[in-house]
Write a protein that binds this DNA or RNA. Structure first.
Lengths: 210, 210
DNA sequence: TGTACATCAGTGAACGCGCGTTCACTGATGTAC
DNA sequence: TGTACATCAGTGAACGCGCGTTCACTGATGTAC
């Protein structure tokens, strides 16, 4: 791979470098200088593509959410609408994303959204949340689950997010080394969604018949 | 309040200053120099009481957990063992602690525990978690809740933690401005604990008779 | 096709800054006599 | 009770460092003719 004077893909290369450093340094702040070193450019180069360091961070967060969304989409579309496997797939993607890149996960969810600029991070976050919640709401609608579908969706999200956080932060490990996160999520999903009472609706009847 | 050459309470004063700065700067790293300024001492003074900056942070985290534990203890002991209000009180304390000092809350739960030194932060964390989980386990035992009490406790913890995190990080707000966190936790507690089937046990019979 | 030139993504050196930490010191305190 | 002295919690100046950002520049690229 030859390195010419003009990089060509520097903008994305810097975002990737930042993401890598965030993951490697796990929680400790990364430095823009390190990202430049990793991308093989001078420390002044980023300023051709970004206003400041924060703009790179925002972009990393946005791409993180986009990644998470596309993984969730990919895993769910393997199953038909209304399949409980779709819900499980979303939960798995969420948890595995957190475990795979814990520092990025923390950064994504705690990144303050800037109301001044058009915030790509907030937009990507909203889209990701909408997809996750939408899957649960669809399940509720299709199966005629009794109750506020939106609230049920938020509850599942909350549970999975809590499980992901406590796992990557090592808090479960403090309590006991053998806590099975997947089992916690699975049982939670049972009680917060799958076991909920249902009413007969045309859609539910169709779903039951399949 | 006179300021003599010898401070007298500098150790605790620095811990308090650090905690205050952590809360004020909300997520951004605080500087030891600022803490010294706040405590009104030179930047060399901390090194009489702490090996390095990290030792202060560890102490702040430990005291944070101790605070949370004692608040939970105080709020629960107003109700008799087995009262559902005890569970609700623990949940409220947890959520309100997070809302009150979000940056400290984040730091407490994501602080890596150092296996080298005797880690006061990890110890305080474990004690806090043990208290929270113990309350739920007690409830299960007293009421003869069917199922793995420990797992039910971890599920409630997970849900409340997720709710606290998504609240303080502004993620609920991204989804919708009118999400009622308390309602999410309350309904979650219903489905994950209060509505669970019970078996007759001497303790459950006694609790029902009261 | 070949040349002149405008563009602009890079360079590399420098900046001011605040950081955590160290050092030799100073002076308030408490104790021994 | 009064004095001498050891202790040690503070001082304040300095350190080396890496940071984010800026600056005048350079040289590769693509376009007009």
């Amino acid at each position: 791979m030859k390195r010419s004077y003009h990089h060509g893909e520097l903008r994305q290369a810097l975002i990737d470098a930042a993401r890598q450093l965030i993951s490697e340094r796990n929680g400790n702040d990364f430095s823009l200088s390190d990202a430049c070193r990793l991308a093989g450019v001078s420390t002044a180069a980023p300023y051709r593509h970004f206003a400041d360091k924060n703009e790179i961070v925002t972009e990393v967060v946005a791409q993180g959410f986009a990644d998470m969304s596309s993984r969730a989409r990919k895993e769910t579309e393997a199953f038909p609408p209304g399949a409980p496997e779709r819900i499980q797939a979303v939960g798995s993607v969420y948890l595995n994303f957190a475990i795979g890149e814990p520092a990025l996960f923390r950064m994504m969810f705690s990144h303050p959204c800037d109301p001044a600029q058009d915030d790509v991070a907030a937009t990507a976050g909203k889209a990701c949340f909408a997809y996750v919640l939408g899957e649960v709401v669809s399940y509720c609608t299709i199966h005629g689950i009794v109750g506020d579908a939106r609230m049920i969706a938020v509850q599942l999200w909350t549970m999975v997010h809590g499980a992901a956080s406590l796992t990557i932060d090592g808090d479960y490990a403090k309590v006991s080394p053998d806590i099975d996160v997947a089992a916690i999520i699975a049982l939670g999903a049972e009680r917060l969604l799958f076991q909920l009472p249902r009413q007969e609706t045309p859609a539910a009847a169709r779903a039951a018949a399949v």
